[in-house]
C-alpha cells in the first residue's frame, strides 16, 4: 500500500468517524451526568435535515451547522423535560425521541429530497488542502477540526474544571450532590442540551461532509453506533477519539479491501459489520472484570433523580 493511498484512506476514515464522534461526545457528557438518552438517532436526523435545509436555503454551512445544533438541542429538551422535570423513564423517552426525530425529519425534509448541495470543504488554501501528503493535516472540513477541538474541550471540562467535577459528581451520586447544594436537575438539563446540540452537529455532518443530499433516514443507524461508542470508550473522551477512529477504520477497511480486489476477502462482510457491536460488549466485560476501571461508569446512569426523597 502506497503512502498516498494510506493517506487517502485515513481521510475517508476520519470523515466516516466524525459524525459518530461528535454525537458520542455529546452522549458521553449526558451519561456522565447520570442520564441515558437513547434518542441520539432521532436528534441526529433532526440535525441532518435542518443542517441541509438551512445550508441549502442560505448557502451558508456555518449557519447550517449552528441551526442544526440548536435544533438538536431543542428536540433534546422534550427528552429533558419528560425525564428530568417529570421523572419519566429514560429508556422509553429516548426511544420515543428517536421515533419522533425519524418522523419529523422525513416529513420536514420531503421538499429537500432530490436537491444537490455543496460539501463543506477545507478552508485552507488548495496548495495545502490538496497536497497529496499535507492534506492529511489541512484537507479536512472545518467539522473535522471542530470534532478534534471538542474532544479536548470535553476532556478538559470533565477532568480539569470545577463545573466538570460537579457534573461527574451528579452522575456518580445525585443524592449527595443535591445535599451539598447543587442543582442536579439543572446540571442534567445542561448536559442533555449539550448532547442534543452535538448530535445535531453530528447529523449535519451527513449532508455537509459525507454525501451532499437529503434523503429520508440519511443517518442509516449511526446514532446507535455512537451509543455503542460511548460505552466502548468507557466514558473517557480521549479513548472516545480512538474508539471513533477504530469504528471508522472497520467501516472503511471493509470498502477499501473490497476495492482492492479479492486478496483481503477472508472475513465475511456480516462479520465486519458486527465487529463494532461485539467489540463494545467485549469492552463492557473487560471494564467489569477490572475493578478500578469500573469506577468510570457513572453510577446513576439511567436512574431518575427525585429531589427530597
Amino acid at each position: 500500500m502506497s503512502a498516498t493511498l494510506l493517506i487517502a484512506m485515513l481521510i475517508t476514515m476520519i470523515g466516516a468517524s466524525t459524525p459518530i464522534l461528535l454525537a458520542a461526545l455529546g452522549e458521553l457528557v449526558v451519561e456522565k451526568s447520570g442520564v441515558l438518552n437513547l434518542g441520539i438517532e432521532g436528534m441526529m436526523l433532526t440535525g441532518a435535515v435542518v443542517g441541509f435545509a438551512v445550508t441549502y436555503t442560505t448557502g451558508n454551512p456555518w449557519l447550517g451547522i449552528t441551526i442544526a445544533a440548536l435544533a438538536g438541542a431543542a428536540v433534546s429538551m422534550i427528552f429533558a423535560f419528560l425525564t428530568l422535570s417529570l421523572s419519566a423513564n429514560q429508556v422509553a423517552t429516548g426511544l420515543a425521541l428517536t421515533i419522533f426525530g425519524t418522523g419529523f425529519s422525513a416529513l420536514f425534509g420531503s421538499e429537500y429530497t432530490g436537491k444537490p448541495l455543496e460539501l463543506f470543504k477545507s478552508i485552507f488554501p488548495a496548495s495545502l488542502a490538496e497536497d497529496p501528503y499535507l492534506r492529511l493535516i489541512f484537507g479536512h472540513s472545518p467539522l473535522v477540526y471542530f470534532s478534534f477541538f471538542m474532544v479536548f474541550a470535553v476532556w478538559w471540562f470533565l477532568s480539569r474544571t470545577r463545573a466538570g467535577l460537579i457534573l461527574r459528581a451528579v452522575g456518580e451520586n445525585d443524592v449527595s450532590a443535591h445535599s451539598i447544594g447543587y442543582s442536579v436537575i439543572g446540571i442534567r438539563y445542561g448536559a442533555v442540551a449539550f448532547g442534543g446540540a452535538m448530535a445535531g452537529v453530528g447529523g449535519a455532518c451527513f449532508p455537509l461532509l459525507l454525501t451532499p443530499q437529503w434523503v429520508e433516514g440519511l443517518t442509516a443507524g449511526r446514532g446507535w453506533i455512537a451509543l455503542a461508542l460511548v460505552v466502548f470508550a468507557a466514558w473517557r473522551p480521549l479513548r472516545l477519539l480512538a474508539g471513533a477512529y477504530l469504528f471508522g477504520l472497520i467501516a472503511t477497511m471493509e470498502l477499501y479491501t473490497q476495492a482492492a480486489g479479492g486478496v483481503f476477502r477472508i472475513i465475511a462482510p456480516e462479520m465486519w459489520a458486527s465487529l463494532p457491536y461485539l467489540a463494545t460488549i467485549g469492552v463492557l466485560v473487560i471494564i467489569s472484570l477490572g475493578r478500578s476501571a469500573n469506577a468510570n461508569a457513572p453510577a446513576c446512569l439511567g436512574k431518575p433523580f427525585e429531589a427530597g426523597h
Binding site: G15, L218, R222, E270
Partner: peptide, 18 residues
C-alpha cells in the same frame, strides 16, 4: 452490504477512486 446507506455508498466511491 446494506439496502440503504447513502453515506456508505459515498465512502465506497471514495475507496474506489482512491
Amino acid at each position: 452490504n446494506s439496502w440503504f446507506d447513502p453515506p456508505k455508498e459515498a465512502d465506497a466511491a471514495r475507496a474506489l477512486i482512491d
